[in-house]
Amino acid sequence: MKIGIDAMGGDFAPHEVLKGVKDYLQEAGDAAQVVLIGDEEKLNALLAGADLPQASYSVVHAPQVIDMHEHPTKALKEKPQSSIAVGFGALAKGHTDAFISAGNTGAMLVGALYSLKTIEGVLRPTISTIIPKEAGQTGLLLDVGLNSDCKPEQLNQFAIMGSVYAQNILGINKPRVALLNIGEEEGKGNLLAQATYPLLKENKHINFVGNAEGRDIFIDKADVLVCDGFTGNIVLKMAESLFEITERKGIKHEYFDLFNFENYGGTPVLGINKPVIIGHGISKAKAFKNMLALAQKMIEKDIMQKLAAELKP
């Protein structure tokens, strides 16, 4: 098993990437081979003092970097030797089994959509986020930004993908799936919600429990919350701000600590045929360690194959 990681992606790369790799290799019981993708000269200089077991990693040279402000599609075309482009190339050719980056999010999404194949039958891939609940459990919210405008059929597929992920990665038996809406009653909401509800209700692949309101997001009402990416991204950014506010004000509580994104690493792109995990631009060692652990778990659990089985036309 080989996991490719963009060693140059993120505000604190490559130093924090290598720290995260070291922590992952030390803590993982049966760690995967890590393929560091980036400027070979810079990486080798840092690796000389990193104390990493040489058999546990390799370096693939990628002299270019896509900066955070660059236009994703244009940058991928103009920088074919960037760490993101090379990383997707290695994944597409089967040289690695997963790819991770905390670099340009747009470039990661474009790369995932155009460098790899979607799972047969998937209308649109999706991205999700972990939702911490009041009692200490975790749930899943999707989509959170990849698909701002959605069709009911797409939300129906998101529900299946989220359910498979929650069961296999979060360890939730028979995940409860809810549609994020402005009311609990059937028939509530905008045209999208009204048209999606009956599809979810008839979907035999999920355990649908009805509508969930905004006040239900952080309590134990459902394990998988489904919405369009516009709504989901607003919820995601609001949740991130809660953690930032508590940090600034020195408010200490174990529940608010659950909002720290580094605990979960990054978000996978669901609906494509190979594991791709996108990290936050400000990721540090803990986040990179957890992204590597998540990638390994996705490979070991055959998540893409299980998604394909559930989504088979």
Rank of each mutant, 00 (worst) to 15 (best):
25 L>V: 12
50 A>F: 12
282 I>L: 12
179 L>P: 05
27 E>V: 01
238 M>I: 12
203 N>M: 08
105 T>H: 09
137 Q>H: 10
203 N>H: 07
208 F>G: 06
140 L>A: 12
150 C>G: 08
144 V>H: 13
265 G>E: 03
304 M>T: 14
149 D>P: 00
195 A>K: 15
309 A>H: 09
213 E>V: 09
239 A>F: 12
15 H>N: 14
280 H>N: 10
154 Q>L: 04
172 I>M: 07
101 S>M: 07
234 I>L: 15
19 K>P: 00
133 K>D: 07
85 A>N: 14
45 A>D: 14
310 E>D: 04
311 L>C: 09
228 D>F: 06
267 T>F: 08
42 K>C: 06
300 E>W: 04
296 Q>N: 03
69 H>T: 13
132 P>Y: 10
62 A>P: 00
152 P>G: 06
201 K>F: 00
56 S>G: 04
313 P>E: 14
132 P>S: 11
48 A>I: 01
275 P>W: 12
15 H>S: 15
212 A>L: 10
127 I>K: 06
140 L>E: 11
180 L>W: 11
303 I>E: 06
129 T>Q: 08
152 P>S: 04
164 V>R: 01
165 Y>S: 10
203 N>D: 09
291 M>A: 05
12 F>M: 01
210 G>S: 12
131 I>N: 01
29 G>I: 03
180 L>C: 09
279 G>N: 07
295 A>D: 13
244 E>Y: 01
150 C>E: 11
301 K>W: 01
130 I>Q: 01
209 V>S: 00
226 V>Y: 08
9 G>N: 03
304 M>E: 15
227 C>Y: 03
6 D>E: 07
51 D>S: 15
79 K>Q: 13
81 Q>F: 13
261 F>G: 00
47 L>R: 14
20 G>Y: 05
181 N>D: 10
248 R>Q: 15
106 G>V: 01
101 S>Q: 05
218 F>K: 03
239 A>V: 10
31 A>R: 03
237 K>V: 10
57 Y>P: 11
52 L>Q: 14
288 F>L: 02
49 G>K: 12
123 L>N: 12
129 T>K: 05
298 M>A: 03
120 E>M: 04
279 G>F: 11
7 A>P: 03
61 H>R: 11
71 H>S: 14
230 F>S: 08
304 M>G: 00
202 E>Q: 14
290 N>A: 02
181 N>R: 11
57 Y>G: 10
94 G>Y: 11
225 L>V: 11
164 V>Q: 04
44 N>H: 13
32 A>L: 02
207 N>Y: 13
303 I>G: 02
